[in-house]
Write a protein that binds this DNA or RNA. Structure first.
Lengths: 190, 190
DNA sequence: GCTCAATGAATGAACGTTCATTCTATAAAT
DNA sequence: ATTTATAGAATGAACGTTCATTCATTGAGC
């Protein structure tokens, strides 16, 4: 596969992300995706077996990019609390810079269009992040609640913080975001 | 409008809720909605001007039922902290009993299908709930962060708690849910 | 007999997917 | 160096299906 053909595949994924995050899966025709990507409709079917395959590939793509950025600047050697808050701040920063990714992930994380296999692969990309939570628990820094619950609470609150900044009446500055993240830490800390 | 026709309108809304929460707006045909509601397709158009009107009416319907139940057992005379946690617990209980409502609200709260007017009307139904947060702030019980941010954090975390119980590997018992809500209170309390 | 709620067949627009064809780039032959 | 052959990437018109919406018809209540 040459670089040019790779770029067509990538263009299809990017167009799908933009359009589906605004109009939804059933609301965006393949013809529109092709138009936005500046490629022929048929070309999409060279790289993806159909519309459902396209959205599953996009899911993996977006989720792995998020997982990678979440560990941005992370150093094993820093205190656990600091690392946890950095991690949440990275999630905030990533989604503030990539709102279409946020809308897409939020809409399709629990959708029947995403296959079980795709979902599992998406979870696997987040293992390094989960390991950090395990360290925090082992250091006795977290509440006596299931680890899954603590990470879910933190993630849910973090997403709502991003949405507030993006869609609220005025976006939040960096200091305000840190205040929110600190509040989220209070929720999970022992 | 007789009781029978009222029941047809309600049946249409209920069928729309069930199907759209599973299949999405563009994924559920009007014909299927009619079939599920045991009414003719044309009948829907007697009560709603079209598919978009139908989903907007449903949005108001669901949101007002949630707002009503959120104040279940609420007494002005109780301590503010207790009231706040009751309120969050009511949201949890309501959505655990009505998962289709949860999926619907989550999918369409930020959708372009919901008009600005509908959205505003939905917000208005939650005014009594927001007033409780204002009381908590005036009593100096909350963090020095914007009120909108605190309520958003609490709501986001609460929703994620419900989702964990509904879709997690094992649902959470009442005591566990209270533990989660207590953690959420820690996030917003001073 | 009149009114109006209720119906679902009919309609035309829009959809996902296919595939015969064109285009492009590299290899082989001279 | 030039021509020819081959492979497979790219295309979009065409197909069959599905959809939201309409409306002529039916039937229940008064």
């Amino acid at each position: 596969m040459t670089e040019i053909t790779q770029s067509k595949k990538a263009a299809a994924l990017q167009a799908t992300l933009e359009l589906i995050s605004e109009q939804g899966f059933h609301g965006t025709p393949m013809s529109q995706i092709a138009q936005r990507a500046n490629i022929g409709v048929g070309t999409i079917y060279r790289y993806f077996s159909g519309k459902e395959d396209l959205i599953n590939a996009l899911y993996i793509d977006v989720k792995s990019r998020l997982a990678q950025y979440t560990l941005h600047n992370y150093l094993e050697t820093r205190p656990v609390r600091e690392s946890c808050m950095l991690l949440l701040r990275n999630i905030v920063d990533y989604f503030l810079e990539h709102p279409a990714e946020l809308m897409f992930i939020e809409q399709y994380a629990n959708s029947p269009l995403i296959t079980a296999a795709t979902r599992e692969e998406g979870i696997r990309t987040f293992e390094p992040v989960n390991n950090l939570f395990k360290h925090a628990r082992e250091a006795n820094l977290l509440k006596d609640l299931p680890l899954e619950m603590l990470s879910t609470l933190a993630y849910g609150a973090t997403i709502s913080l991003v949405k507030l900044s993006l869609f609220g009446h005025n976006k939040l500055d960096s200091h305000m975001l840190d205040g929110g993240i600190s509040a989220i830490w209070d929720a999970i800390k022992r």
